[in-house]
Design a protein around this nucleic acid. Structure first.
Ligand code: ZN
Ligand code: ZN
Ligand code: ZN
Ligand code: ZN
Lengths: 142, 142
DNA sequence: GTTGACCTTAGAGTAGACTCTAAGCTTATA
DNA sequence: TATAAGCTTAGAGTCTACTCTAAGGTCAAC
């Protein structure tokens, strides 16, 4: 049985974050001391580590929440449900990468066009490009 | 002279967003009607379009704020200042891409390992990988 | 028996970029 | 003239994932 700071040390999450996750239903302590201290048993610890692993991959807390509900009753859920969550996340990641690569491309072109020196910015081709508006849009919603 | 909704139509920003940008010093209307309506002249419109172009590229409002202060007095600023902002943004974008590609990689491997079918998730290799924790960390701080 | 580290809670604050609301003028159209 | 569309403001709400604070109780060591 670990106390919260011990679970924190073990998982690399902060005690604050562990309480925050508890408030959002991701983690819980099966026992409390008389004084109200949280005590985590082996199953709790494994669950916390599952959460940490999923978070490290990049899953949102909402995704993790869904993965956890599959985890507690695997016989009621299918591989497909798991791949759906994973695929959806991958789609998101791919969309974000595409957006960032577009920015990367635009920024690189801008940088190439500018001398980057100590001259007055009156002739700066980056500023000119921004004024002219002839750059493609990288950002979509939010 | 355009009213706010006309500037909105012209730039593709919403009137709300235009007021929000004004509150943050990015855009302003040189004139107001007696009733307090904002009126935008050509210089205002060009400034708004500059902001919109920079935002489309992916610059933060803080970056745009700096670019604008260069823009209003180009002789007091150098090309280097402009490239510094641009390079800094590019570095950020590259870091984010690296992080996302790491996620992409992990997610792809997970997806390959799972049958994705209607079977019970009891044998799911994605779940197993998450339990085992043997996936590399993609996410860094915030 | 007291210091100090650790624990509890509810709730506020942070970041970034909006997005919306309420309450009330103004202006254009029918 | 009445209705609707459009404008004003301050300020609150949204989203995600924390991060921190205040005020106080608990526990082990010296
Ligand atoms: Zn130059
Ligand atoms: Zn330049
Ligand atoms: Zn399967
Ligand atoms: Zn599977």
């Amino acid at each position: 049985m670990l106390k919260i700071s011990e679970l924190a040390a073990k998982t690399g999450l902060s005690a604050h974050t562990i309480r925050f996750y508890e408030k959002h239903g991701l983690i819980s302590a099966s026992e409390r001391s008389e004084a109200g201290y949280r005590y985590y048993n082996d199953a709790d610890i494994r669950r916390a580590e599952f959460v940490k692993t999923a978070r490290n991959i990049g899953f949102s807390l909402e995704d993790i929440s869904q993965l956890l509900s599959i985890r507690v009753d695997k016989t009621s859920h299918s591989c497909q449900e798991v791949t759906d969550i994973t695929q959806h996340k991958l789609d998101e990641v791919n969309a974000k990468i595409a957006e960032l690569e577009s920015m990367q491309h635009t920024l690189s072109i801008l940088l190439e066009s500018c001398c980057g020196g100590p001259e007055k910015a009156t002739h700066c081709s980056i500023m000119e490009a921004l004024e002219a508006g002839d750059v493609k849009k990288s950002r979509s919603a939010a």
